[in-house]
């Protein structure tokens, strides 16, 4: 009971100090509407450029992969099927390792 009251007092004190910290930045000047509009316009241009570049890269890699697959399938079908079986195994293992690592980092924090 006493501990709960102490905790309540502590939280009140913490909230008060955080309000004081907030008040230090009451005179903050956010960017003007014009500045933000310029940023929005330049970001839109950058995103469009990036999307075009990514699409081009996607087509290029797809073309390379497709032609290599067809070449391997026609010359060495056995290797083609081994590679097809390995890809999902490697992909899923990679995802599992990344997931475990992220959880471990979260626990360390």
């Amino acid at each position: 009971m006493e501990n709960e009251q102490d905790q309540e007092l502590f939280l009140q004190k913490l909230t008060g100090e955080l309000h004081r910290l907030d008040a230090q930045y009451d005179d903050l000047n956010p960017p003007s509407i014009q500045e933000l509009e310029r940023l929005i316009a330049s970001e839109a241009v950058r995103r469009n450029r990036q999307a075009r570049k990514e699409l081009l890269l996607f087509w290029l890699i797809s073309l390379i992969l497709l032609s290599s697959c067809l070449a391997v399938l026609s010359s060495a079908p056995a290797i083609y099927w081994v590679v097809q079986a390995l890809i999902p195994v490697v992909g899923l293992s990679g995802l599992a390792v990344a997931h475990i690592r992220r959880r471990r980092e979260g626990a360390e924090d």
């Binding site: 956010p30 960017p31 003007s32 509407i33 933000l36 509009e37 929005i40 316009a41 839109a44």
Partner: peptide, 10 residues
């Protein structure tokens, strides 16, 4: 609407 977004962000 970029102006609306700018106001929202500001």
């Amino acid at each position: 609407d970029a102006s609306a977004l700018a106001v929202l962000l500001r």
